[in-house]
Nucleic acid binder design. Structure first.
Lengths: 220, 220
DNA sequence: ATCAATGTTTACCACTTGGTAAGTGAATCG
DNA sequence: CGATTCACTTACCAAGTGGTAAACATTGAT
């Protein structure tokens, strides 16, 4: 996570540099996430940005290093999107529900972000390690949260890591398999998304909520 | 689905040709499924096969046409893997359970097959259309099956297409997100897979089985 | 005004890409 | 047996790849 938080004087050269780097990272994330890392050349990227490829290589010495920067940016955005959900008010289940809704919202509005994570998983190697490292604080926070919920009996006791990944992959799968929807003749509409989200919440509720948890209310 | 079923005389030239084409398709499916279509050059492919790239281009006029052939092969294998489950004995739920077990088995033994379908989804365009067309008979069969189960009250009534894709993407997600597993510090072992499959079956059971269905038994 | 640092472009390079053309040795067929 | 078809290789090619070098324009400090 190399992102610097402190912002330089507005309008300064440093600020403008950061702005173009931001623009590059943003377009790269979009392209890598939807088309795949190898399918996007630096020339493609530069053309999309209205600059030359050498301008990109000025800011990062190679395409591979640029990818690392995009990974950091993607992880940061993911954490921003989801981390807040962990701090929200409410009982165990309602917080889970809130996380699911967030993931669906992200999957609908920023499909390239989740697609990018998936792409990184496929690239494997150092890229995977990097995203793992970047997301570690969030994962650790989520795990701790689940553990506490279990301790207090609001969630059925189970392996918290497994629970996290099950929930993640389930939601991600359900939220992103748009092409599969098309394969069965369903144009992905808002309505079908709502239906599937409701189904999914019911799934998760059945799987996670401890039977004796009376402070958690079943969905639908 | 251009695959010819009739096999020519064994040992004949035509048979040997079909054998190398088979070998090429097999390696291409493996490579495209794990590394992605654009990440695998014809030279890479040929090197893996111990032949030259022009030998590949002799059998298919372009990389894109080869992809179509690989799509057909992947769809065929998928159908072979799953279609039998629809014909199996048992009540509504036990058949669903059997399908889920099959998908998990495929995800464990042939990850590149599911990875390839996902890759095709990302490529989109004609490739997606082709896999859609190839899988249509199976999808239609599965949908019909679900409709009948609903009519007979063994599965809760809902949109059968949505049910199919929900089940598919949920299972696929849970079965294939190995890298995400690693991200939360879980080395994918046989045990963790078993646990996740059990969780998932419980998910699906809750979502699909009609409450009044007494002939269906809840898992675990 | 000057000058150095900075961000970007033009020009270029070695290498890889998908694809073509022509040649070659073996199997098949008359 | 000889001609031919077939499966494949060697030899190329034009376009595109990531990356380097150097020229160039703009900014900010002196």
């Amino acid at each position: 996570m190399a992102a610097v938080i402190t912002s330089p004087p507005k309008g300064s050269r440093a600020a403008r540099t950061r702005a173009t780097e931001d623009r590059i990272l943003s377009v790269a994330l979009e392209s890598f996430g939807t088309k795949g890392f190898d399918s996007v050349s630096l020339d493609d990227l530069a053309a999309d940005l209205g600059i030359t490829k050498q301008a990109i290589l000025y800011h990062w010495p190679s395409k591979r290093v640029l990818l690392d920067a995009v990974i950091d940016r993607a992880a940061l955005e993911l954490i921003i999107e989801f981390d807040g959900a962990l701090s929200e008010e409410g009982s165990g289940w309602s917080r889970v529900e809130s996380i699911v809704r967030r993931i669906f919202r992200v999957a609908m509005r920023r499909p390239e972000l989740l697609g990018f994570i998936r792409e990184i998983s496929r690239i494997g190697g150092d890229a995977s390690l990097r995203v793992t490292a970047d997301l570690e604080p969030f994962v650790s926070r989520a795990t701790t949260y689940f553990e506490r919920e279990m301790d207090e009996g609001r969630i059925r006791r189970c392996d918290s890591g497994l629970l996290l990944v099950s929930a993640y992959s389930t939601v991600l799968g359900a939220a992103t398999e748009v092409e599969v929807l098309r394969a069965v003749g369903i144009e992905p509409t808002l309505r079908s998304t709502v239906v599937r989200r409701r189904e999914l919440l019911s799934f998760l509720h059945a799987a996670m909520v401890a039977p004796q948890a009376l402070n958690a209310q079943a969905p639908r």
